[in-house]
Amino acid sequence: MSLSAQIVIQRGPLHVDVSFEVQQGEVLAILGPNGAGKSTLLRILAGLTRPQSGRIVLDGQLLDDPTAGVRVPPHRRPIGMVFQDHLLFPHLSTVDNVAFGLRARGQSREAARRVAAEWVARMNLSDHGSAKPRSLSGGQAQRIALARALAGKPRLLLLDEPLSALDARTKLDVRADLRHHLADYAGATVLVTHDPIDAMALADRLVVVERGRVVQVGTPVEVSRRPRTDYVARLVGLSLLSGTADGRSVVLDSGAAVQVAEARTGPVFVAIRPTAVGLYRSRPDGSPRNVWPATVAGVTPYGETLRVDLHGKVPLTADVSPEAAAELDLVLGAGVWASVKASEAAAYPA
């Protein structure tokens, strides 16, 4: 085991109480809405903020334990951190920024600059070695910030929303770069983000935090297939229903019944993809057993389709083509019938 953290802290009205572990070489993403306390968690791991209680152990070394009076200051922790807006020192050149940590940890100026120059080369930015940070683009600056954090060979790498200050195209490039460098990195990584795509693309495992609590833990595939809260479901683009299963039939809290793919018993979640929902002006005949009346609560463009929010006893989201939408006359408040094949309704224990 590499990092084991149990963190309790009060931030204004928000009570944060979160535990997680990260293995060596593993990338853990802490995913959650803004104001969920994610960045506070990273600052505590870095030693920049003191937890109220809890325990942080990295490779067997106790870093924080307020009840035992243990607190290793940030500069004595074997960590590297990348901040949202890079925070490269404006008065130092690119190479000197990367060399800063090596110098601070006791290497000679020449040795530090040599290693730093190698890192700058690895980021394909050798041409900018003597440039000041203000002359770098956002993507270049963030790559140098990553090099600066990694150059000291930290045992724990902390990434605080590393891509969210970048424009859409740069973000793709830097994300690919980051993925590449994280694959080479032997230590534990904790990534904090509110962007599910960043989390899914970069992390081996996700911890979803809402209002200071862990609401779901799992691999990106598990979390995206089986969301456990509305927030996660919305992030991964699924409709989430909850109810009680008896075999292949689930009775929702609203009283409606849904036929699902696999037999379950007891409290379950049912997840339905928007593309699996069919819409009709009148009640369809024949095969689908899951047919419910609904009203249109919103229509928004989504890629090449339209995403339709439906209210009713079974609240769903449906993706329809613009042609189908015109044919169905999907105006706000219109009544429609929604159908879902039982094989498309995934039920899993709540």
């Binding site: 870095a46 200051p73 500069h75 922790r77 901040f83 020192f89 940590g101 601070a104 954090a149 902390l158």
Partner: peptide
């Protein structure tokens, strides 16, 4: 925050 960054880089 520049001082925070320096601290995470091992600077006293």
């Amino acid at each position: 925050r520049y001082e925070d960054a320096a601290a995470t880089l091992g600077a006293s």
